[in-house]
Design a protein around this nucleic acid. Sequence first.
DNA 1: GCCGTTTGGCTAATGCGCGTAGCTTTTTGG
DNA 2: CCAAAAAGCTACGCGCATTAGCCAAACGGC
Lengths: 208, 208
Amino acid sequence: MPRAGLSPDAVVRLAVEVVDAGGPTGFADLTLAKVAAKAGVAAPSLYKHVGSLADLRREVTLIAVRDLTAAASSATVGRAGADALRALAGAWRDYAHAHPGRYAATQIGADPDNPADARLREVGTESVQVVVAVLRGFGLPDDRVIDAVRAVRAGVHGFVTLELGGGYRMREDVDQSFAVLLDMLVAGVTALSTPGSAPVRDTTGSHR
Amino acid sequence: MPRAGLSPDAVVRLAVEVVDAGGPTGFADLTLAKVAAKAGVAAPSLYKHVGSLADLRREVTLIAVRDLTAAASSATVGRAGADALRALAGAWRDYAHAHPGRYAATQIGADPDNPADARLREVGTESVQVVVAVLRGFGLPDDRVIDAVRAVRAGVHGFVTLELGGGYRMREDVDQSFAVLLDMLVAGVTALSTPGSAPVRDTTGSHR
DNA sequence: GCCGTTTGGCTAATGCGCGTAGCTTTTTGG
DNA sequence: CCAAAAAGCTACGCGCATTAGCCAAACGGC
């Protein structure tokens, strides 16, 4: 009975490979059985290295978020303002294209009450900080930074999600549409940072 | 052995109830066993009315998409331009808040090659047509309509997704952030429709 | 009203994935 | 060299989807 030489890290690495091999649904389809098969080991053996499937998924998410943050961060070095924002968004989308399964892993939310999710909350915050840093370059009023960050995250994440999910059915150039979205975000953030432009109206009607 | 009086429609209705009862993860957690329990019937009995869990999920998605489309559509009657766009987006978000499980159901993509997904593709198109109709009111050049539709969908869907997923951790007023996003989208679409404003540059660097 | 057929339930059983228990072998370190 | 820890394994139980085959209820024509 030779040993397989596994370790917690090795198992997580294999899990990431499984996720990567599974396309956009790779994360949803992640299974201990697949990881075990890839490791050449019986499924229960994995429990020597990992607490549960949920734990393993959490670890994969951690890696994915850290990866994405690193990609986004390194894309913005040496850039500022609109340039940085475009680079950030482009890197974000590129990462999602290159690793759709991992990008999906990124979307699981950390439970604020679950201590096991502490590290997850942490890396999530770091990820958002990259966006914050880029937007700071626009000289936004402090109380508008959050709004701008949320708008940028919403736009980019929404675009990528719809794109990966097959939501953009028309053959029309998706890259151009993304460029248009970026124009809107850049213009919108810029406008937010120049006082005197239209203030935000008190929320009308349909959104409480 | 009294009969339960089920029917395909009744089963789907129960499935929707299960989804609604499950919060944001209600769709992911949808299970034949739960539907059967709610129907007061053994699980295999459901196969007299539905082909498979996948089929049932598809039916739920159909209902959810149609519902969302109806809500969005009726929110825009009698409105035009920015007003209509704000109402549309608000209704979209309201629907997601009111029925998070169903909204999640909405996100499954129709497989272009799968004949079983034909109706799904259909209702998806109808849904997008509502957005198209609203944006037509901005007098966009024909070849920009797609870009605008995609940006609006991305922004609203992304915002709602992040919001429901717990992605907006800061306690800061989320309604206001949504209003800011809408400002950006309105301004962006307006700019797109006035020729002479900055043309879209050829995609730079990071997005191929 | 009666009978045959269709229909809508049921139970039994299979397969698969997670997870636990307990055994055995390898590795390690004293 | 030996004991204890570590890393495998098999066997098992659970929940869920799905298939097969049985049986009673409802229905339609006579």
